[in-house]
Design a binder for these strands. Structure first.
Length: 497
RNA sequence: GGUCCUGUGGCCGAGUGGCUAGGCAGAGCUCUGCAAAAGCUCGUACAGCGGUUCGAAUCCGCUCGGGACCUCCA
């Protein structure tokens, strides 16, 4: 049995994964900022780390999966016009900030459920942990690595860098950071442009504001993750995940803050997913090329040829290794849609198949199937290579279909191979990859009606009354239900997306 | 400008020295009342140039292209 290896952004290589406490894994993933709707790009980390969570659990670990909700808002822009992002938007929409936060949190949860993502063990909110954040900032000040300036608190990067490696994670060179001159106003509060805010004083018009030892204000950009991760996972924990775009400054700063407070590197394995691109460009607000999840599911977007089921998105994302960029296009999504259907149909067929001892065992086939199935674990252990897992699953599809259609004798596989195949596919397709069928036919009445139509059509076909049998099939097709004749006179149907 | 990543067949995308990735689309065949599905077969791809090597998509160099981060960002 191979060992799980994870690519660690910190060391830039794959490392054997060893939890700090055997049998237990602490995992923190940067969650959404609920000042707006999630888009396709946001789907990637949550699906990626859902699979990581599922796989670690499958390996027998008790995993505490913490994913925050950023509801305190960050700055839209640094400097004079600095405004709390959430309060600013709330003014525009004439909503209470918390009403807005609730709305987008609900939408986020709804999307997560559609993706079949398992909810995290703890989903802490930034606003619910102001006390912890203030406490952490006080510790940093006491340690001498932060200073108060005009009601704000800044982390002293230069001082930290003198004794620590600031830039280790992101590959930044501290000298370059210190040299960078920016023409942003408000910088005069800082001793150095590379310093980052731990606490910001709030202008009177800010709606979201809290009391602190330094006056009325709100927490800085990076402190919430440090505070909540420390609280729920301890001073040092196993995995910290997030998008690659968070490497700097967010995660780099998290390391600095936590290291000062807890005197230990906070994270053992930093794991980062790559971006989803559209026309080769990162999907993001600043590029004006986002497709929101609600638009994706409804098809209501000029760039979309049609609506796409959340499972299709999940499958689309899992077809790529998480550290590669993934380019969006209608063509690619439609390919994913058909691929998922093919895989799922075969899986459903296998589920319904029972082992029969007939014919002789085809040793070569048996060996091939066994290998394909056994490799699934190997691929997952190789830095969660879901792309390779899916490739193997697809290689098994013709075998399953051939068994179903009796092109391969039911006994061509050894009984133990057959049951192993069934068991592992259940495990990998449903439990680990978390895939589901896209059919919306889970409706008893529809099932009954369809069975009736199938019976009538069978009778008609038996009498060579093709006019009737074609009428049933054609009219169902118009309703978006496809009826297929199978070998042996059986019929199957499915609702087309 | 600095740091880093990347360029695979019509599209998406695995793959870091020699063994068919896979999916979608396309072509042919089989099965079939027809259709669909399914099965079989096929395209023989690795930006360009040069180098290392018995052998490179895979290592090195250069050229060209794309991108990320350096600012909120999954």
């Amino acid at each position: 049995m191979s060992q799980l290896k994870i690519y660690n952004s910190l060391t830039r290589q794959k490392e054997v994964f060893t939890p700090i406490t055997p049998g237990h894994v602490g995992m923190y993933v940067c969650g959404p900022t609920v000042s707006g709707e999630s888009h396709l790009g946001h789907a990637r980390p949550y699906i990626t780390f859902d699979v990581v969570y599922r796989y670690l659990t499958h390996l027998g670990n008790k995993v505490r999966y913490v994913r925050n909700i950023t509801d305190a808002g960050h700055f839209e822009e640094e400097g004079r016009e600095a405004e709390d992002k959430i309060s600013k938007k709330a003014v525009l929409e004439k909503l209470e900030p918390m009403e807005l936060v609730q709305k987008y949190t609900n939408l986020f949860h709804w999307a997560m459920e559609k993706f079949n993502n398992i909810p995290p063990s703890i989903e802490p909110t930034a606003t619910g942990h102001i006390v912890e954040q203030i406490g952490m900032i006080e510790q940093i000040i006491e340690a001498g690595y932060a200073y108060v300036s005009n009601g704000s608190v800044y982390f002293d990067v230069k001082k930290y860098a003198a004794s620590h490696d600031y830039g280790k994670l992101s590959g930044r060179v501290i000298e370059d950071l210190l040299e960078t001159t920016r023409e942003l106003e408000g910088q005069e509060e800082k001793r150095d442009t590379a310093d980052f805010a731990l606490w910001k004083n709030a202008a009177p018009e800010h709606i979201m504001r809290w009391k602190s030892p330094w006056g009325i204000g709100f927490p800085g950009w990076h402190i919430e993750c440090s505070a909540m991760a420390t609280k729920y996972l301890g001073a040092q924990f196993d995995i910290h995940g997030g998008g690659m775009d968070l490497l700097f400054p967010h995660h780099e700063s998290e390391i600095a803050q936590s290291t000062i407070c807890n005197h230990v590197a906070p994270v053992r394995y930093w794991v980062h997913n790559n971006m989803i691109t559209i026309n080769g460009r990162k999907m993001g607000k600043s590029y004006n090329n986002v497709i929101k999840l609600t638009e994706l599911f409804s098809g209501d977007h000029p760039l979309l040829a049609k609506a796409f089921h959340p499972m299709v998105i999940r499958f689309f994302i899992l077809q790529t290794q998480y550290r590669s960029t993934l380019d969006f296009s209608n063509e690619a999504l439609q390919a994913a849609e058909k691929g998922l259907k093919r895989l799922w149909d075969a899986w459903e067929k296998l589920k319904a198949l029972e082992y029969v001892q007939e014919g002789t065992v085809d040793e070569n086939l048996d060996k091939k199937v066994l290998q394909l199935v056994q490799e699934l674990e190997e691929f997952m252990n190789d830095d969660f290579n879901t792309a390779k897992v899916l490739a193997n699953l697809f290689e098994l599809v013709p075998v399953i279909n051939s068994m179903k259609d009796k092109l391969i004798a039911a006994g061509a596989l050894k009984e133990e191979t057959f049951s192993f195949l069934k068991k592992q596919l259940q495990l990998y397709i449903e439990d680990i990859l978390g895939l589901q069928g896209v059919s919306e036919a889970d409706n008893d009445r529809l099932q009954g009606v369809m069975q009736l139509l199938i019976d009538i059509r069978k009778e008609a076909k038996g009498k060579k009354d093709f006019a009737t049998s074609d009428k049933i099939r054609n009219q169902l097709a118009q309703l978006g239900i496809s009826l297929k004749d199978e070998k042996g006179g059986e019929m199957s149907w499915s609702v087309e997306g």
